[in-house]
Amino acid sequence: MGPKISVLNLGLSLGNSTILSNINMLAKPGEVHCIVGPNGGGKTSTLRCILGQMPHTGDIQFEWGENKCIGYVPQFLDFDKTLPVTVNNFMTMVCQNTPAFLGLRKKYREAVAAALDIVKLNGKEKTMIGNLSGGERQRLLFAQALIPEPSLVVLDEPMTSLDEAGITIFEDLIQDLTARGKTLLWVNHDMAQVKRVSTRVTVIDTEVIASGPTNEILTEPMMHGNFRAGSPPSIKVSGEAA
């Protein structure tokens, strides 16, 4: 079972700039909660605050079950593409403390093989990650998030390089995780996908424009990226997380 996450009056300022102001939102187990908004609106910053990576004001409350594991799928990996790190090396690096150059330990082999199988990267274990396509690299990042089994999955725009097949793999996996009661937090730009997959949505542009069930929040202008226009006034944002 995933955690319930309540974000209360979250604020973030860097220097003289206000990045986030009075953000309130609620993410529940078994739901896909998408965070949408314009570029520079503070979506990734919200995620980073929730993950405890940025100093912030306000309160973020987690109500965990037994499993407190977080699976995080970042936007990209920043590395030298000629670096000799294979898919297996990468999975080894994130799974175990024993140095990756000594190989994957027996007790992790099954889990790694299963994760790579889920994202259809089996057979690519010995391929250098620099030689993977952008979409394959995103699938690899998703595979690492599955070990150890997470109760909260946080996705930071992982779909940018994916083709149709990759998107199908992702969406199937997300539906499976949701069905198993995991909590999913997802920064997403693809409004059609948000409408298709998410349960709840929060629209952020420095502050919360709207937050609530997807079918109530996503208006036609929003579907076309016009987040300020036509946000339903009936949604009580601050009351949502309380």
Binding site: L51, P74, F76, F79, M93
Partner: peptide
């Protein structure tokens, strides 16, 4: 360096991912 090898390398590949882990 040997016990911290994975953590150091992961930190350079993606600090946010390393932090979550």
């Amino acid at each position: 360096g040997i016990p911290l090898f994975n953590r150091m390398l992961l930190s350079s590949l993606n600090p946010a991912l390393a932090h979550v882990r």
